[in-house]
Write a protein that binds this DNA or RNA. Structure first.
Lengths: 234, 234
DNA sequence: TTGGAAACTTTTGAATACCAAATAACGCAT
DNA sequence: ATGCGTTATTTGGTATTCAAAAGTTTCCAA
């Protein structure tokens, strides 16, 4: 499915369109409530309406947009409730992913890529957000878990995780590297129970650190009325 | 997203196409490994290629098919490993759903629909499979949980659950109604911890009852080689 | 001025026709 | 049989068109 990696070379046009739209929505260039005009968008992305219309159902399944028949598609407004829901499900899925990954390592799989990803998260790259690097680490754990259905569900969840992280102040993610290191090492040592518990603690700490700040920063309701057009008048 | 209900009146053509294809795949009319020929299928379903091509990305996200660029789409082969994965994730999501639902009831929500759904599962309808009724009950719990992200993930999982149930012998689902009754009552009484634990036990019992039978009935590998065409030569 | 109905415009959902490029199938020579 | 070159198919994608539904504007009357 649509791996949220930036435009894999081996990917259909519709998946690249989907990724472009995700980026526009997460970055806020397409604010919540915007109407997605098919012709306008397809012209802007320089594709025909077909790949665009193939991308829209995907974005709807991921909760980035919602479509009403004969009325069009609208960008979802990310609310505090959405943030709570993201933590709810990370709390259920990430411990399982960590457990699976550790089991795989215990069974002989190599944690090399995962350790490299941890190192990359530490050193980072100047221009890049910490949020992206953290998401990458979690994706690496899921990849190591080698669990197809988990990968699909995580992929769905991941869009919202990225969206949420973009809205989270950088300083809330400060002590995060040490937590990640603990977790990664538990996995790399093949200790499923420890990995599972640490993953749970990690998510729980993130929730505790993020939600208070977010509650002031996010709307609690979709929109008052009169969804504004694609570009807000500034 | 595409609610797996049989053709909601309020739904685009592409969603009805997706549901039709799900049905064909789950029922085995499109066996694992089949190639989906776009023109052939769109003629058979009496639609143009447009809604068909909008449906395919959805089915791919749900794991019913996998598409290779410029080579087409192929029906996924349901393996024993897939069955294991379904139980893995039901074990993580259904207890959470039950907990949420019970919390909502404790907070004043009505469990009326859920109790009706339980009654329906008991009395049943002659022509209908027990598998369908059981799925409906779980969907009702998710609906009561009123958790958008959970609903999306469950919806993705649900296709595979339906697929798995179709492959499960009826007699393995015998004592199931009593388990469901316990669970539903815990939810209806607003007892989240009990509901969560019972949901976990329910999934675990299902796994224990189903997997031994399935291991003889399902292939462990996708296909030997040479994917056969849409209709197997019989 | 305000309310509401009628006429107009836009947009979506969907079909059709068409094309280039990649793959698969075929036939032919070895 | 096996390997190679040549056709056929099929996919991915574009452009164009159309009916029907939604949204907008206009205009008239109270």
């Amino acid at each position: 499915m649509a791996n949220p990696e930036p435009s894999e070379p081996e990917a259909g046009l519709s998946e690249r369109v989907a990724e472009a739209l995700r980026e526009r929505i997460i970055s806020g260039r397409l604010p919540g409530g915007s109407k997605l005009n098919e012709r306008e968008l397809s012209a802007e992305l320089d594709v025909s309406r077909i790949p665009l219309r193939e991308a829209l159902p995907l974005l709807e399944a991921e909760g980035f947009i919602h479509s009403e028949v004969r009325r069009g598609s609208f960008v979802h407004t990310f609310t505090l409730r959405d943030a709570v829901e993201v933590f709810d499900l990370r709390l259920r899925l990430e411990p399982f992913a960590a457990q699976c990954a550790a089991l795989r390592v215990a069974g002989g799989a190599s944690a090399e890529d995962l350790l490299a990803s941890l190192e990359y998260a530490r050193t980072g790259v100047p221009g890049e957000q910490a949020s992206g690097r953290n998401s990458d680490l979690h994706e690496e754990i899921v990849r190591l878990a080698d669990h197809d259905l988990l990968r699909r569900l995580s992929s769905l969840l991941n869009g919202r995780v990225r969206w949420l992280f973009r809205l989270t102040p950088e300083r809330d993610t400060h002590g995060m590297w040490e937590e990640h290191a603990e977790l990664v090492h538990a996995i790399a040592e093949g200790r499923p129970a420890l990995a599972e518990a640490l993953a749970g603690a990690h998510v729980e700490r993130g929730r505790h650190a993020s939600l208070p700040h977010l509650s002031g920063r996010l709307p609690s309701e979709p929109v008052p009325r009169r969804a504004r057009k694609t570009r807000s008048p500034a």
